[in-house]
Design a protein around this nucleic acid. Sequence first.
DNA 1: ATCGTGGCATA
DNA 2: GTATGCCACGATG
Length: 998
Amino acid sequence: MTTKSKKDQVPEQTSADFSGLVPVSKGSRVYLIDGSGYIFRAFHALPPLTRPSDGLPVGAVHGFCQMLWKFLRETKASEAPTHMGVIFDAGRETFRNEIYPKYKAQRPPPPEELIPQFPLIRDAVRAFNVACIELDGYEADDLIATYARMAVDVGGDVTIVSSDKDLMQLVRPGVTMFDGMKSKRIGRDEVIEKFGVPPEKVVDVQSLAGDSIDNVPGVPGIGIKTAAELIAAYGDLDSLLAHAGEIKQPKRREKLIEFAEQARISRSLVLLKDDVVLATAIEALGVRDPHVDALLAFLRAMEFNTLTKRIAVGLGAEVPPPLAVSVGASVKAPPQQAKTRDLETIEEAAPVEASPAAAVAAGAAIARAEGVDRSKYEAVTTRARLEDWICRAREAGRVAFDTETTDLNAVDAELVGLSLAIASGEACYVPLGHTGPSGDLFGGEDNRPQQLDAEEALALLRPLLEDPSVLKIGQNIKYDMLVMKRRGIEIAPFDDTMLLSYALDGGRGQHGMDALAERHLGHMCMTFAQAMGHAPGAKKSDKTFAAMPLDKATEYAAEDADVTMRLWMTLKPRLAAEHMTTVYETLERPLVPVIVGMEHAGIKVDRDILSRLSNTFAQRTVRLEEEINGLVGHKFNLGSPKQLGELLFDRLKLPGGKKTKSGQWETRANLLDDLAANEELDGDARRLINTMLEWRQMTKLKSTYTDALPAYINAETGRIHTSYALGATTTGRLASSDPNLQNIPIRTKEGREIRTAFIADKGMKLVSADYSQIELRVLAHVADIPQLKKAFAEGLDIHAMTASEMFGVPIKDMPAEVRRRAKAINFGIIYGISAFGLANQLGISREEAGDYIKTYFQRFPGIRDYMDATKKQVHAHGHVETIFGRRIHYPEINTKNPSMRGFLERAAINAPIQGSAADIIRRAMIRMPAALKIAKLPSAKMLLQVHDELVFEVADSDASALIKTACRVMETAAEPAVKLSVPIHVDAKAADNWDEAH
DNA sequence: ATCGTGGCATA
DNA sequence: GTATGCCACGATG
């Protein structure tokens, strides 16, 4: 086993021992590569390139890989670097924006094609096994300055690979720059040539000259030439400004006096910070050999055929076979050499079929090679052992991570322990908060098992969890991110096996770990009950993870991390092979931190309002109950549909009774409504039914909402923190639970009262922004229905238009009933209409409903075409797609059971419509935090999503600005990936509570 | 305690 | 007719 041999080389485990870390000392040759510079150059200097199979833009990734490979080869041969790192800018906002808000403010956002390539390029760096470094709040240049200083301090030799003039201030003895494009060293002389002053005065010159690209103001009218002249004459900026009055030229003198402060601000912007507190130690930059398999798999997945071969040959590795190629993948990069062409031809000739691609097979094979052996897991209880695991995670560049807590609800959960896995079968558990076997109030303390102090362990783990060069892999990592966020740790970068499965296999089953382990690894995970069964504690409620003995906890927890790592190895390669990278990278993964923020924020709820409503509902319930008992003459359980059905249809022999499939009398509200409308009924029976309906409404509102919600108010925050499931629905919608805040009543007056309990904090407003008719608009677009598109373009009442088109009634003074029918039909269309369902909905005969549908199809023939095409597609391929490429599978679609098939066909018709709408709001949500930041709305927080509605909380004074930004983001969310052929409209309103805001 | 069923809240 | 989650009941273990 690799673990063993590695450990064998390290006889002692002490806190100072970081196997794999290489200290920097005299003679070290440290290479710091300006990653962002590389990216932009790769992007702009090279022609655009898209991945043949799915059109994902990958030009910058390709150029970057090419440049990095060339650089690695050349320097390895000539200069033998000892340390190397690629350093990236982390985000738009840095500490410089605090000094000067306009810094880099006018810089346009990166081109759309470049955005999905940023994470891929980081993946590439990791695959090359080069340290991949970034830090929130700092520019790459500051990190480079810091590493350079550290290296020089101990006598190392630094090369900064960049041609950015902003880095020239760092040149000094021991530090040179290298322009990879021109293959030219930049030393002291070259800096003097560029700036007219030596490197140590570059900052002074830049402070005067400013920089229009970065929006560094400088002093107007002074460029590099003049600045250099002045600095040469006066020595430095401060002396110059002190003696500004002595300057001969009047214009120059006045400007220097007037803009002295601006020059000083400019200096603080230009001066690089060389004492950043780093997340990645410089020792971790030690040069390592590439991960050959990972690198080649990555290049294959990107479909860089020539580059894959070139690098495979360069590494002396076997050229991996190409991935399974789909129909559209015949376009290949032209071969560059005769020799390459031969290889290409051989590859083309090789049989390529729909079987799993080589990378996929390889990943799955490793994941399954050895069965899960719980006895091999380690319980980590010493600092030294934890440091060893962290170190190995760093070396591997990735780690599966899982937390164990006291509660399934992440905002209430207390951390009990966490597990790590570095490779298949290599996993450990770090207990932190176990109470021990007799976990009662009195004896618990003494029985606490020996374990690391939580604070100490987290302090060691934080740099790993936040290390941009180590990928953290989780299963439903949203949960772990929330738990860690509450301890001040932001996990990044990450992958989520649940979301990988969701993107790949939506509709093919559940995406929980147990289901995935069984499906992909043939492994049955230990259940919580199994592990817990061995713990003492009479009451179920006592059985939290904290009480579990360490041996069982280790088996259970480490297995989770092990299985997660194996699932990642199985699923991640499929992403590229099955062309789901764009879906995962643009619709799934980026949503996780957004949801984490929303769940963390929660929404304020007024306990008193709910309690008052509960009382009102209780009183009304009692009165209704008395009335019903009086009418019936004896007591029965009103909440039992069985008893009610027997009363109405067996004893009172009321007409129109229908049975459910289990033989019970049906007593749904719909049916009771019809029953009450029946002329044959006497007054008492009618009163009974109507009272019963009212009783049901009252008890529903009370039990599901006003009684249940207060229990969810978090004691610390006073707010309700719902949980959003990201992989629960087949269509791409989110699901809300614990509590479900996506089904808070709105239709009835009494129900809507409940919404008044959802309030904004003091000095704040709630803003609700909702898409108008989003699904019908999507339908108009995907089915290409001219009348619908025209109606939306003109802002007409869409249901009235439908009614007018179908029944020939003028829109003006249209009877409400006519419009209601048209509305029902419109919804029916979205749901994959059937005469049976429409008849049910409208309370008309099946024949009449069938006629409506016929008329509808005559007036809008495109709808029938769309439905037929969708059915054809799903039968032929077993899946349908949203407009953004999300796939929804229907593996059972060809079932012989006709009613089942009908159901699946309707679901398949609905899925692209509901799913595309879900994707649109996902895109809006993903963009929202950055948009709020740019719009300078730090008080605004997104709190809730209700399928076509987003709820925000914002300072009173910013409400109207938020409405503007939120609407813009939501209305343009489909772009630029898809330009809809209908306008998208969003309504938004601010108020003190959710009822008034909606 | 846990499960299936009926019923009902939302988009 | 689509997509969810939660409640109470009543039968099961």
